[in-house]
C-alpha cells in the first residue's frame, strides 16, 4: 500500500462519522493504539515544541531504508492525531514521505488543527516527520 492509498483509506474511514463526537471518540481510540515510544526517548530532545500538550516523537531508520516512528503525548486527542500521522507515514522511505502532500488532513476535517494558533502542534508534528525524513535522506546520500 502506498502512503496515498493509506491516506485514502483514512479519509474513507472518517467519512463514515457524521458527528464530531464519533470522530473524536475514534481519535481517542487511535491514541490508545499508538506504538509506544521507549521511555528513554521521552526527553527534551524528542519533545516537539509549539504544543500545549507535550508530544515526543522518535524515528528509526531501518536497514531496509524505511523509517519507523513512535510517539507519545500527555493529551489523548493529541495522541490520537500523532497516532494517525504515524499510521500514515511509518514504514516508508524518506523519499516517499517527502513526496506526499497533506491534503488528507483537510479531508477528514482536522484542518482546524493545522492552524498555528491551535497550539496543539499538528503542524510541528508534520514538520518534524518531514525533518526526520530529510535528515535520513541526507545520510543515505552521503
Amino acid at each position: 500500500m502506498t502512503i496515498k492509498e493509506k491516506q485514502d483509506a483514512i479519509v474513507e474511514e472518517f467519512s463514515m462519522f457524521d458527528d464530531w463526537m464519533d470522530k473524536y471518540s475514534y481519535l481517542i481510540e487511535l491514541g490508545k493504539e499508538l506504538p509506544a515510544i521507549e521511555e528513554k526517548y521521552k526527553d527534551p530532545q524528542h519533545l516537539i515544541s509549539g504544543c500545549q500538550s507535550r508530544v515526543w516523537l522518535h524515528a528509526r531508520h531501518d536497514e531496509d531504508g524505511k523509517i519507523y516512528f513512535t510517539a507519545d503525548s500527555d493529551a489523548v486527542i493529541t495522541k490520537g492525531i500523532v497516532s494517525l500521522l504515524i499510521k500514515t507515514f511509518s514504514g516508508y522511505s524518506a523519499n516517499e514521505i517527502l513526496n506526499t502532500d497533506m491534503n488528507f488532513l483537510e479531508q477528514i476535517g482536522l484542518k482546524e488543527h493545522l492552524s498555528p494558533t491551535r497550539s496543539n502542534g499538528l503542524l510541528s508534528m508534520i514538520k518534524q516527520i518531514q525533518l526526520y525524513a530529510r535528515a535520513f535522506k541526507l545520510k543515505e546520500n552521503n
Partner: peptide
C-alpha cells in the same frame, strides 16, 4: 485528563474556555 483535551472538546460544544 489533560486540560487541553477538555478545552478542545468543550469548544466542540460551543463553550470557549482557556487551557494551559
Amino acid at each position: 485528563i489533560h486540560p487541553y483535551d477538555v478545552g478542545m472538546l468543550l469548544d466542540k460544544m460551543g463553550v470557549a474556555v482557556r487551557t494551559g
